[in-house]
Design a protein around this nucleic acid. Structure first.
Length: 644
RNA sequence: GCCGGAGUAGCUCAGUGGUAGAGCAAUUCACUCGUAAUGAAUAGGCCAGGGGUUCGACUCCCCUCUCCGGCUCCA
């Protein structure tokens, strides 16, 4: 008996029946066999050592691929569970999948793990790896599996949910054994534990069983494993790099903002430097809003509870709102978590006709949301923040062009901020939703065409829209490859109904407008947090709080230094003189650690010749004797706002 | 909110029941200097806050606040 395997290059090769994946890989090439972790046969991932029982499309999966890494990490998770169950008698285990860059396993143990525990567990894992225990696959019936895992309730809960196999009776589930350890698992796995080249446990934390906060909280251990110790080290270095650009560290270092404990969690104050950054961002936001045809409105920070009742926020969003303020003989007031109802009321302030539309209302609106204490995270998740919020009201005929305009606006905004790698997500109607079906269908079609026309790659998140409307989220990739969701364009079918918004269409027919929520930056705080991390604090010159710092060599040059600063300020440059009296080297160092984009050093020669010494951030050299006029012109050019 | 960890000078951190420490930053003085740290001196503390145990608490216990890592949440 023989079977035919078709390789990825199209070649068809005959192999004897019962040959293993590893043997096939060896026949293709020893290097391939060495890095092989599994094979794919007709789309199904299988263990290397498992005999091949039918012909078909065949591919060797290696550690170079994401699938290969998953196999490695999943096998690492088994070793983790094996170590923990061995070290902690009476403990039980739940699930342990591969995740991005690593793996985890959830356990129920008497005591939460300490960092010292993790060291011991990792040590035991290394022993298991050096013992090179083979992973052995075994198929069995549900009943057998239930008996095998009788002592492990989380496992039996999973087995209970498995449908009995009709194709291969008696083989409902598979388990993998290595030595005395056995885990319920679909596989595939590495041939043996010795094929885990590099591994590290990272941390432990609490995690709910099945992600449900009403259910038992388990102890999760996170780890990472890689094809080589070099790659493990590179990964750990990457984590350190990410830590270095953490905006919560850079913000105070660069004197941009702080979170005084006296204010409460998630409430930020902007210092002068951060205030300048924020002003620049706000100015640019207003400028672009104006250019894209938006009108400006201003609304208060609180409103009577009735408003939030009408808008539906008290029904659907109350747990994220600060509690009401009671006053004698007055209705309760609530601080706003969103700006929409206010803008809706501006729409409603008079009768509208189709001639008023589209009506684009925008506001840098500060909102307050009661985020759970455990989720507050610097500027990225605060309790008080300002949205560059807008609400556009338009007719059905205008929807397509409005969506195109909003998308263009968001992309322009993000490009100006220095992002050029975008990915969009189109979230469609969820199971539970409100609003006319016709509006859903029409809007989703128009959102998709707007995306198509923009050329931005996108994926459809089926059923992940809000209950009140579909949306587009724009994600950017930052300098170290992390994705951030920033802009959002969101249809709303519920607020126009709740507030009974209307306009007189041609022929004096009453129609309900379409409503588009849009935030280009999202929240300004979060946006600035992302910018700080993206640029690692070295902001582009146009947004840098200090654009040029001027360093007199000795204090007899102070006067000239201030004259240079005045000259630059005339050109619109934010310039600062460091006349602290320190040495030149020290002042240069300070300017660099504060990430000032440009430094001008002025000494005797410069005073005599009206020149400056120019040094730019990130460049290790300096340029001497640049005529002041030339330097000014160059700096003014470099500091120009994008799009200006 | 839940599980765990942490909070000592502006910052980074030592300090395991017996008088509170270092480096950087700050201030003062000297130095007047050409591209990433000149030197010396000085000052700086309710050891997050409150309660308890103890002859005695930064240290042990309880509560609160804040932060960190996750989970959950983000209509």
């Amino acid at each position: 008996m023989s079977l035919e395997l078709r390789y990825p290059d199209g070649k068809v090769v005959e192999h004897p029946d019962g040959v293993t994946g590893l043997q096939v890989a060896e026949s293709i090439g020893p290097r391939l066999a060495a890095s092989a972790v599994a094979v794919r046969l007709d789309g199904e991932l299988r263990d290397l050592g498992r005999p091949i029982d039918h012909g078909g499309d065949f591919e060797v999966v290696t550690l170079d691929s994401n699938e290969g890494l998953d196999v490695l990490r999943h096998s690492s998770a088994h070793v983790l569970a094996q170590a923990v169950l061995g070290l902690y008698p009476g403990s039980t285990f739940a699930i342990g999948p591969a995740i991005e860059d690593g793996f985890y396993y959830d356990f129920k143990v008497d005591q939460p793990f300490t960092p010292e525990d993790l060291e011991v567990i990792e040590g035991r894992m290394r022993e298991i790896i050096s013992e090179d225990q083979p992973f052995i696959r075994e198929a069995m019936s549900r009943d057998e599996a239930l008996r095998l895992f009788a002592a492990h309730p989380f496992k039996t809960e999973i087995i209970d949910s498995v449908e009995p196999s009709e194709v291969t009776p008696g083989e409902d589930v598979t388990v993998y054994r290595n030595l005395d350890f056995v885990d319920l698992c679909r596989g595939p796995h590495l041939p043996s534990t010795g094929r885990i080249p590099a591994l590290r446990l990272l941390r432990s934390s609490g995690a709910y069983w099945r992600g449900d906060e009403r259910r038992e909280q388990l102890q999760r251990i996170y780890g990472t494993s890689w094809p080589s110790s070099k790659e493990l080290d590179a990964y750990l270095t990457r984590l350190e790099e990410a830590e270095k650009r953490d905006h919560r560290r850079l913000g105070p270092d660069l004197d941009l903002f702080s979170f005084p404990a006296e204010l409460g969690s998630g409430l930020v104050v902007w210092h002068p430097k951060g205030g300048t950054l924020r002003k620049v961002i706000e100015d640019h936001s207003r400028d672009l809003h104006e250019r894209f045809g938006f009108d400006f409105v201003f609304t208060p920070h609180l409103a009577k509870s009735d408003l939030w009742q009408t808008s539906g926020h008290l029904d659907y969003y109350a747990e994220n709102m600060y509690p009401g303020m009671e006053l004698d003989n007055e209705q309760e007031y609530r601080v706003k978590p969103m700006n929409c109802p206010f803008h809706v009321l501006i729409y409603k302030s008079r009768a509208r006709s189709y001639r008023d539309l589209p009506l684009r209302l925008s506001e840098l609106g500060s909102v307050y949301r009661y985020e759970l204490s455990g989720v507050v995270h610097g500027l990225l998740r605060a309790r008080g923040f300002t949205q560059d919020d807008s609400h556009t009201f338009c007719t059905e005929e205008q929807l397509a062009s409005e969506l195109a305009l909003h998308l263009d606006f968001c992309l322009t905004w993000l490009r100006h901020a220095g992002f050029d790698d975008f990915e969009a997500e189109l979230s469609t109607q969820p199971e539970k939703s409100v609003g006319e079906q016709g509006r859903w269908d029409f809007s989703q079609k128009e959102l998709a065409s707007a995306l198509e026309a923009s050329g931005v790659p996108y994926r459809v998140a089926e059923g992940e829209g809000a209950f009140y409307g579909p949306k587009i989220d724009l994600h950017v990739k930052d300098a170290i490859g992390r994705r951030w969701q920033l802009s959002t364009i969101q249809l709303d079918f519920t607020l126009p109904e709740r507030f009974d918004l209307e306009y007189a269409a041609r022929g004096n027919v009453t129609e309900r407008p379409y409503m588009i929520h849009c935030a280009k930056a999202g929240s300004l705080e979060r946006f600035m947090g992302v910018l700080i991390e993206h640029y690692a604090g070295a902001l582009p010159m146009w947004m840098s709080p200090v654009q040029v710092s001027i360093i007199p060599v000795a204090d007899r040059h102070d006067e000239y230094a201030h004259a240079v600063a005045a000259r630059l300020r005339d050109g619109g440059i934010r310039a600062e003189v460091d006349d602290s009296g320190e040495t030149v080297g020290d002042k240069i160092r300070r300017a660099m650690t504060h990430k000032h984009p440009a430094v001008l050093v002025v000494g005797d020669d410069d005073v005599a010749n009206s020149t400056v010494g120019l040094r730019l951030y990130g460049e290790d050299r300096d340029e001497r004797g640049v005529p002041l006029i030339e330097a000014t012109n160059r700096l003014v050019e470099m500091a120009k706002t994008p799009g200006s």
